[in-house]
Amino acid sequence: MAKEALLEIRDLWVEVEGKEVLKGVSLTIPRGETHALFGRNGSGKTTLLMTIMGFPAYRVRHGQIIFKGEDITRLPPYERAKRGIGIMFQRPPTIRGVKLREMLKLCAKENGVKIEELAREFGFESFLERDVNRGFSGGELKKSELLQLLIQDPELVLLDEPESGVDMENLQVIGRMIRRLLQKDTHRPRTKSGLIITHTGFILQFVPADLGYVMIDGTIYCQGNPQEIFEGIQKHGYEECISCLRRIEE
C-alpha cells in the first residue's frame, strides 16, 4: 500500500519581484519521510520552501500545494502553521523586547509541550529570558529556531540549510534536535515529514533522508538516493546532473 502523501506539489510556477523563479516544480512527500533538496545558490530551493510556507512575496502563478489532502495554495502563513507546517529560517530576524520564553509560549499554543524541559535538554535554558534572536551567534540562532519548531511540533518541517554557520560541536546538538523533530530515533512508524535544503550534505550524516532532489534553474532535474546524488555532485558538480540519465523527462 502506498504511503499517504502529506505534501503534494503540482506543477508549481512562482514569481518573486516580477522574476520567474520556480518553473513547474512537482514533488510528493509521503507521511514519515524526509527528503533532501540540493542545488546551486539561486536555483530556487529557498523559494520553494518559502512558497510552501506561504509568504506573500512568493507569488504562485500556476500550480497547487496540497497538504493533508487540502489545497492550501492561497492560505496565509499562519493558517498553514496551524495546519501543521513549520519552517526553520536561515536568517531569522530579531524581535526586540520579546523574550524567547514568550515566543515559545505562543508557538506552543496549548499543545502541552514542556518549554523548560526541552530548553534544558538542549542546553538553551539561559536564552529563555533573552530577546528573540538578539545578539545570538550562528549556532545559537539555529538552536533557537529548532527549539521553536520542537515546541510548535509541526507535521511537516521545512529546513533551510540547518548546518550553515555552525561549528562542529554545535552541529552535533543541531543534528540531535532535527532527529527529534523528525522522529528519527523512534521505532514506531514515523508521522513527521521533512524537506531539507543542504549545500554541504553534512546534516545528512545525522539525519538520513529517504529521497533526494536536484534543483537547477527552478525545476527539479533528478530525484533518487540522496547519498548517491550528493556523492555525484561532490565528484562531478551540478553540470553532470544536467546531462545525467536519471533526469526526469518532461
Binding site: P76, Y78, A81, K82
Partner: peptide, 19 residues
C-alpha cells in the same frame, strides 16, 4: 516570521509593538 509560527498578522503586529 511570527506568522510562520502561527500568529495572525494582527497578533504579530501587536506583539512587535509591545516588544
Amino acid at each position: 516570521y511570527l506568522m510562520a509560527r502561527g500568529l495572525s498578522e494582527e497578533e504579530a503586529t501587536s506583539l512587535i509593538v509591545q516588544g
